[in-house]
Design a protein around this nucleic acid. Structure first.
Lengths: 249, 249
DNA sequence: CGAAATTTTGAGACCCGTCAAGCGGAGTGG
DNA sequence: CCACTCCGCTTGACGGGTCTCAAAATTTCG
């Protein structure tokens, strides 16, 4: 059997209806304003998740809309042979909607103890029609999501392994800073090495090696297995953008 | 200088303002209904482009909204050293908007003789407020774009070279079929091999080799340098999804 | 028809995937 | 408190798919 460049295969569920379903789900992150959030919450239902518990699976009918209030989740798609691509992570404040009734195109699964609110498509539509400005906000958020997706395409298509990990760390750091509003030097890694690998299009072994590489260059430090400290933000940035290729090994 | 896994470097423009601009542009494709299109067109200005002529560059202020009526274009982002990732192609009927005044996060360039309509952000906003249903349509279209971006992430992160090319061909074929409304077996390739490579995260040489591979397997035929005929759609599909790994060499 | 550009083909190198073993922290039981 | 197990992470050796470099073949276009 020929080489398939994508280790760490995920065990497939007994049956999963992937293939050519016309997909419409959309992830929307970071940005609904406080009154909007409060209004939505009053219509919703709170749900707590344990690690590895899933919110829905690829192929499920897309009937609900979600908002994360605590914890974190991963979104992923599986290929027929178990190869997995994580297309995004969700954190508190992130929003996951769908535009029309279709099927979810990915699975969403909690990384840790997580709290989210869901509401039905109908309740959501009703809310929208009572809050017309929300439609525009949704569009704005979707645009932001799309810009992020484009950055990820650049990462997956054109960056070397070390550059991918550096980019990933910077985006986690900056996300934390946007959330807290202050400069940070540390952040948590709620996801496993395999999750990081499946997000960056690598294997867990390569992630581990690149972690060592960044550490040896003095760019980062691991305060714990799942907590990163940035030692040289400038250096990490130039590695992320591929500019440190010149610097002597 | 160490290995950078991404050949065919693009000559960089003398200066280009990339880096950490907060981006918001959004591509929206395939779907505004006829009256909407007509209404938009009445407010817009037609523009003709020659091959390689660009509509705007990464970093330009995002003041306009575009709609393609003829021809095709590519959207791409450059890294500092000239590595390029094409994040999408645009065809007639496709729409390129931005949600708020920011900078474009990518460059858009014509592949062939192309005709498009543009209008100012203000005119677009005015149009939106006169056609409230458009906002929802935009959101729906954005969701569709995002789903496509997620599929591309799976392709870039987890598919082998032959699978990428097979997936690409199928998506071009299906796009043609959606546009024409009938089953097709042929389609044009308005983009160069380098463009295909930069879209699929490969090099032009690998694209060429995989082309030969698909041809040798009897899956496709090249009617011309830039026109593909599908000989075995089922086989191409299973190659795209990575299922033909089992089949004998 | 000839020059330039693009595409294809070939040979060799390399990053990263694969496979396997070793390490270390967390939880459990004695 | 320590031995033991489990499981995720790290490290090492090796091979392979794809990149790089180069040249031939083909197409484009004046």
């Amino acid at each position: 059997m020929p080489y398939i460049p994508t280790g760490n295969l995920t065990p497939l569920p007994d049956e999963h209806p992937c293939a050519t379903c016309p997909v419409r789900p959309i992830t929307i992150c970071r940005g609904l304003d406080a009154p909007t959030l409060a209004g939505m919450r009053s219509l919703g239902t709170m749900q707590r998740l344990k690690p590895e518990q899933s919110v829905f699976h690829e192929g499920d009918p897309a009937k609900r809309v979600f908002m994360v209030t605590n914890g974190s989740l991963k979104l992923y798609t599986l290929l027929a042979d178990g190869r997995r691509q994580i297309t995004g992570f969700m954190f508190p404040g992130d929003f996951l909607g769908v535009s029309i009734d279709e099927e979810y195109a990915f699975t969403v699964e909690a990384l840790e103890d997580t709290e989210l609110w869901w509401f039905s498509r109908e309740a959501f539509d009703r809310f929208i029609s009572e809050h017309p400005q929300v439609e525009r906000e949704l569009y704005r958020l979707a645009a932001h999501e799309l810009a992020e997706a484009q950055r990820q395409m650049v990462l997956l298509g054109r960056k070397a392994a070390a550059e991918r990990l550096a980019s990933f760390f910077l985006s986690l750091l900056e996300r934390n800073e946007r959330a807290s509003g202050v400069q940070e030097t540390n952040f948590d890694l709620p996801m496993s090495r395999i999750d990081i690998a499946d997000y960056l299009g690598l294997t867990k072994e390569t992630v581990s090696r690149m972690l060592a590489h960044l550490r040896n260059r003095g760019l980062i430090r691991l305060q714990a297995q799942d907590r990163v400290q940035i030692l040289d933000r400038i250096g990490l940035r130039s590695m992320a953008e591929g500019e440190s290729a010149e610097v002597g090994e």
